[in-house]
Amino acid sequence: MSWFKRDKTGIEKSNTKHVKVPEGLWTKCPGCSESLLTQEIEENLQVCPKCGHHYRIAPRKRLQSILDNGTWQEFDAELTSVDFLDFKDTKSYQERINTTVAKGGSRDAVICVEGSIKEIATQIAIFDFAFMGGSMGSVVGEKITRSIERGLEKKQPVIVISASGGARMQESILSLMQMAKTSAALAKLKAAGLPFISILTDPTTGGVTASFAMLGDLNIAEPKALIGFAGPRVIEQTIRQKLPAGFQRSEYLLDHGMVDMIVSRLEMRDTLGQVLAMLTRQ
């Protein structure tokens, strides 16, 4: 049976020539499947240089890309959520707040600043999705309302950049009331003739969409962002059907008349500069 006997050595795996690739050096783009240097994406505001896929971006990085000189003055940074309902699921709400705050970054899910866009002084509230899914509780609602009120007082436009799973369940009824509170403040801004621009980024759903995020004089979406009222899973379970392709994505909303335009992150500053100048008659 010598046919079956291997008389040559097989192909051997070399142990020596392995090049160690540091973790995270390369990123495979979910948009175009290209392997790209992570650094290249980061330098491009987290947008794929090949296909324009928008990765999520940290709020302060985004502010740098929008505001003149990349500078701003922050307000109300000290406001912190409290577990007034003693809410407990698998963890208590207080524990969740503490661990999230301890991770560094923000003290809650929205950062409120004043800065200029092409020399137009503007109030901006920007969500931090990394903080409990950008959910809106008392602090988020309060900070956004104060931003709007500062806009009223200083006669400045207001921009909210949303990225949120919706209301914060751990604050139950009071998280719901933030929808009414922020929307009521927007009624005052509207009556005062000041512009409100809502920028919807991936993802913007639930109570945030069903309040200020849909109330922009201009609603501007980032490409392919998930934007909706009910989550896709909830809808699928309710209607027991598969959802159509691209459902609840920016392009779908544009098609259905819910947003004014889709703007790439790379063009956002220029677009905002142009429309703000026109809306404030400069």
């Binding site: 959520s81 008392s138 309302t145 009071l174 009331m177 509170k181 009521a184």
Partner: peptide, 10 residues
């Protein structure tokens, strides 16, 4: 009425 609906630490 709605403006006052807030619970937080300042």
């Amino acid at each position: 009425k709605f403006r006052a609906m807030t619970r937080m630490a300042e």
